[in-house]
Design a protein around this nucleic acid. Structure first.
Lengths: 148, 148
DNA sequence: GGATATAGTTAAGTATAATTAACTAATAAA
DNA sequence: TTTATTAGTTAATTATACTTAACTATATCC
């Protein structure tokens, strides 16, 4: 099935390019609206998605020092977007999680990014909608499985 | 088909969240590897996608002044990522396009973002692959149609 | 032809993200 | 218990993205 595989590859490429282009515009808009930096939104996204444990962990994942992470998180805490509490198991460490306001902000972002999909899909036939559901479920599982 | 529509909405939401989380990590990695800023990569993406005409146009789309756009583009030109030439129709304006090096960089980025999809899809059945192709084609067309 | 508007550049100043280095506090190891 | 390691914070410095303002050059309008 060489031909089908090539078509798939091209399809994925075009979709990725179009989606990224739009996502970046939305991302930039959120930055302007909220006054948050790229890194700060990235931190919120990491907390939303799960897998970011402490301050140093976030620094590593984001590619900067734990000092920078501490400062960035501090601003997010002051803005009521992140809740920072002591870890009872290891009192050196901090437990970080999205505060309600931060969760709402992230959900609003996801809304914006997905609205155009929902718009187009509501005019599709049930069979076509099932196609989208099946495909996106596969892709979401693939994305989650790859934790590298 | 209320139930199916709700499921679709939820599916899109989860996919969007997972994809964005991964894309942002890749985006940050490209920033670190190349030393380019968020805005500079965004400009390259805009030129790649088409629809960014001159310097001021880019400034408007990116949400900053044309002075900032001029400076950002100048750095990209110095790095051989963007080709800036005079517009023969209106000699005040500049024609901007990706230089070969810039095009290669963007394509490498798309590669990275789509590799995980290609990885998972190559183990799927032809029928499942067709499902993905059909869904992503629909979504890509939707993304392109919405030029707002 | 002269006034106005548009496209872009340049320079100086501002704001802030991130680094380095020095520090505190809690845990682990010796 | 003493030492070393780990987690995080803080302050001073650096780097740079972006703004404002002044400028040049081309195009359009009267």
């Amino acid at each position: 099935m060489i031909q089908s595989s090539k078509l798939l590859s091209q399809t994925v490429r075009e979709w990725s390019e179009a989606f990224m282009h739009r996502s970046m515009r939305d991302f930039k808009r959120v930055m302007n609206d909220t006054g948050l930096s790229f890194s700060q939104i990235n931190i919120l996204m990491c907390l939303m998605h799960g897998g970011c444990e402490g301050v140093s962990d976030i620094g590593e994942r984001m590619g900067f020092t734990n000092a920078a992470a501490s400062q960035a998180i501090d601003r997010l805490v002051q803005l009521d977007l992140v809740k920072r509490s002591e870890n009872p198991q290891d009192r050196r460490g901090k437990q970080l999680e999205l505060a309600p306001k931060g969760l709402a902000l992230m959900q609003k972002g996801i809304e914006a990014r997905t609205r155009w999909v929902e718009d187009v899909t509501e005019s599709l036939t049930p069979a076509q909608q099932e196609t989208i559901i099946a495909a996106l479920t596969l892709l979401t599982e693939a994305a989650r499985a790859r934790t590298d």
